[in-house]
Simulated scan of single mutants.
Amino acid sequence: MRGRKEVENGRLSLDIAHGLEELYHNYRNAVVQSGLPEADEIVLSNMTVAFDRILMDVENPFMFQPHHKATREPFDYYMFGQNYIRPLLDFKKSYVGNISRFFEMEQHLLQGHNIILFSNHQTEADPAIIALLLERTNPRIAESMIFVAGDRVVTDPLCKPFSMGRNLLCVYSKKHLFDDPALVDRKTSANIRSLKELIGLLKNGSQIIWIAPSGGRDRPDPETEEFFPAPFDASSLDNMRRLSEHSGVPGHFYPLALLCYDVMPPPAQVQKEIGEQRKLSHHGVGVSVAMEINFNEVSAHCENKEEAKGAFSLAVYHEVTEQYNILKSAIYEHQGLHASNFKVSLSQPWAQ
C-alpha cells in the first residue's frame, strides 16, 4: 500500500496511513457493491485523488477561515467530493421529497431573500448527498448552500479535502466545546468570529444556509439500533431565527429531512478524539423539505418567549421527522414512490 511507503518516508503518520488503508478497503467494497461495470477504475481514480489531496494537506495544512468559500480552482474540490460520493448512492432507490419547494427557494434567492434550512444531520457526506440529489434540477442551490459545520470536519485529515469543496461556517459545537478546558476560550472566540460572518452574510441577502439544530449527527437507538432525527436544541434554532429576522432582509425557514446514514454511518457514540472509523456502503438516500414554517403562527398562543422558543423548535422537529418517516418508508420499507402522501410528494428527477 502506498500509505505504508509514505510512513517509511516520514511523510505520513502511522494512524493516518492506517485510516487511509481502512478507507480504501471500505470504499472499494462499497463501490463494487454498486455493481457498476467500471467499479475498479472508479475506486482507483477516486482513491488516488483522495490520497494525493490528503497527503498534500498533511504536508501543508489548509487553515479554514470562519467563513470558508468552496475551493473550485486551480483544483475543484467541490467536484472531487461529488465524484467520490456519487458511486455510493443507489439512485434507483433514492428520492427527493417536494422538489417544487426547492424551486420556490430559488425564487426567494433571486429576490434577495435568505433561506434557512433546519435539518437533521446523518453523515460527513451530507453536503455532497444533498448536492447530488439536486444537481440536475437545482444546481444553484446545490453549489451555493452554506453549511454550519463543526470543527471535526475541518481538522480531521481524512475529511478536510472534502470540506474544502463546500461553503462552510465553521463553529465549535456545544458537544465538543469543553473537550479540552485549555481551549475553551480560543474556541469561544472562534465562534464569535463565525457569528459575525453569519450576520454579514444574512445582511447581504440571497443566502441559503443549512444548520443542524441537534448539534451533531443522528445516532441509532441503543435498543432498536434504528436511526432517527436527534432532538433539536431550541436555543440553537432560536438564535438562527432571531439573527435572520434582525438582519433587515426577508428570511424563510424550511424544515429539511435527510436519510442517508447507511452510506457512511457515524460511530455509535460521540467521540472526543479525531480519526473515527469510516464504514461505507452503496445505498439509497433521500432528502425532503417541508412547507415554510412561520414563527409567529406557531407561537401565537404562547404566553412567553421561552414557551414560544420551545414551540417553534418542536414544530420544526415534528416536520423533519414526518418527512424523514416518509423517506424511511420509501427506502427501507421498499414502498418507493408509493410512500408519497398529501404532504410529501416523492420523485426521482434524475430518472425523468
Rank of each mutant, 00 (worst) to 15 (best):
R219H: 13
P222S: 12
G216V: 10
G215A: 06
N191A: 02
S214D: 05
R241M: 07
E223G: 04
F227E: 09
E197I: 04
E225Q: 10
V184P: 00
I211R: 03
L201Q: 02
K203I: 03
G205M: 13
P231T: 15
S206V: 03
I211G: 11
G215S: 03
F232G: 01
A190W: 01
G215E: 04
R193G: 01
A190V: 00
R186L: 08
T188Q: 02
D218W: 00
I208P: 08
D238E: 09
P222N: 08
D185P: 00
P181E: 05
R217P: 05
N204I: 05
T224N: 07
K196V: 11
R217G: 09
F232C: 02
R219Q: 10
K196R: 15
E223A: 14
N239L: 14
P229T: 10
K203T: 04
P220F: 00
P213N: 15
S236R: 10
G216L: 05
P229D: 09
G205V: 04
A230N: 11
A190F: 01
R241Q: 03
A190Q: 13
S194N: 12
I192D: 01
L202T: 07
D221Q: 05
G200E: 03
L237Y: 11
A212Y: 13
G215M: 02
S235A: 12
S189N: 05
P220W: 03
A182I: 02
A234P: 01
A212L: 08
I211F: 15
S236E: 10
I199C: 02
G200Q: 01
S235R: 12
P213W: 15
N204V: 08
D238P: 00
D233A: 06
N204K: 15
N191R: 00
P181Q: 02
E197Y: 06
M240N: 13
I192E: 06
R186V: 06
I209Y: 11
A182Q: 05
I208S: 14
F228W: 13
F227V: 06
L198N: 02
R219C: 12
P213T: 11
D185H: 10
S189K: 12
E197H: 13
G205T: 09
S235Q: 15
V184I: 11
L237I: 07
A230C: 08
L202I: 06
V184K: 03
S194K: 05
I208M: 05
T188F: 03
K196Y: 08
S206Q: 07
G205Q: 12
P222E: 09
M240S: 10
P231Q: 10
N239Y: 08
L195Q: 06
K203V: 08
D238W: 12
L183Q: 09
M240D: 03
E197M: 11
R193Q: 09
T188P: 00
P213F: 15
E197N: 08
Q207S: 15
S194A: 14
E223L: 10
V184Y: 08
D233L: 09
S206I: 03
R193I: 00
F228P: 02
R219G: 13
